[in-house]
Amino acid sequence: MLTICVKLSEFERVHDVAKRFDNVWCTVGVHPHEADSETGVTAQRIIDATQSPDVVGIGETGLDYFYDNAPRKEQKACFLAHIEAARETQLPLIIHARDADEDMADILETEHAKGAFPFLLHCFSSGPELAQRAVAIGGYVSLSGIITFKKADDIRETVKLLPMERLLVETDSPYLAPVPHRGKANEPAFTAHTAEKLAEIKGVTPEEIAAVTTANFHTLFTKIPPVAN
């Protein structure tokens, strides 16, 4: 399991969870909602936190123009610091993007041109253009229980366009529990339902989705050793 940090001020609490359990890892980062309230966010501070073997990714970071809980200027500055850290460490960047497709795609392409870095569009709910532009520069797309929702036809259509070798599944726990558990607190076991829906969308078996998304996870999160069969 991968547990996500959304505030640097709470990183040690998240890190402690990862250190307690052999099958849990964590990230370090600042969610765009917290971009102006979390002070002293620098690439070096993020890089320093990644030296632990339990810290396997950077983020959650990105842009959220739906809620605009932080000024967009601060969101972008914070996001760029995370990109710099990802480029330096080559650890995957976990990206939150909501109602910011054009800016997100432009920033990713501009920054990628300065030097490649691995990244993941987490809990994907954006349009096809962002997804395709991200995949074109090496990005991955992670799908949550949203793809099981009745009104998510547009997202399912986008998923059809994406290559299997760039897809993952996730919970976004405790949010976005998939059908048939919608409305309940989400949990890791529920990813089975998301994977089943993904298999239906792609026209393959659930077992194939399990194998492919697990392989993709380990290709992206290189610090996590694969589980022995």
Rank of each mutant, 00 (worst) to 15 (best):
M1D: 11
T3D: 08
T3I: 15
C5W: 07
F11S: 04
R13S: 11
H15W: 09
K19C: 14
K19T: 11
V24H: 10
W25Y: 15
C26E: 03
T27S: 15
G29R: 04
V30I: 01
H31R: 07
P32Q: 08
E34A: 03
E34H: 15
E34G: 00
A35T: 10
A35M: 09
T39I: 09
T39N: 09
T42K: 10
A43F: 08
D48A: 15
D48G: 11
D54R: 15
D54S: 15
G57P: 14
T61S: 13
D64Y: 01
Y67I: 05
D68L: 14
N69V: 03
N69W: 09
P71S: 12
P71I: 12
R72N: 11
K73G: 14
Q75P: 07
Q75I: 04
C78H: 01
L80T: 01
A81D: 14
H82D: 09
L93R: 11
H96L: 07
A97P: 02
R98K: 13
R98T: 02
R98E: 06
E102C: 03
M104A: 04
M104D: 08
D106Y: 05
D106P: 02
I107E: 14
E109M: 13
T110I: 02
E111C: 00
K114N: 10
F117K: 11
F119C: 04
L121W: 10
L121Y: 11
H122K: 12
H122D: 12
S125Q: 09
L130N: 04
A131R: 10
Q132D: 06
V135G: 05
A136H: 03
G139P: 09
V141T: 03
V141A: 02
G145R: 11
I147M: 07
T148A: 09
K151P: 02
R156H: 07
R156Q: 13
V159F: 09
V159G: 05
L162Q: 06
M164Y: 01
V169G: 01
V169E: 02
V169L: 02
D172Y: 09
P174R: 04
Y175R: 05
L176I: 10
L176S: 07
A177M: 06
A177E: 05
A177V: 03
V179C: 02
P180M: 05
P180I: 02
H181Q: 05
G183F: 06
K184V: 01
K184I: 01
A185G: 03
A192I: 15
H193I: 01
H193Q: 08
E196P: 00
L198K: 05
E200V: 02
T205W: 14
T205R: 14
I209D: 00
I209G: 00
T214P: 12
A215W: 10
L220Y: 00
L220G: 00
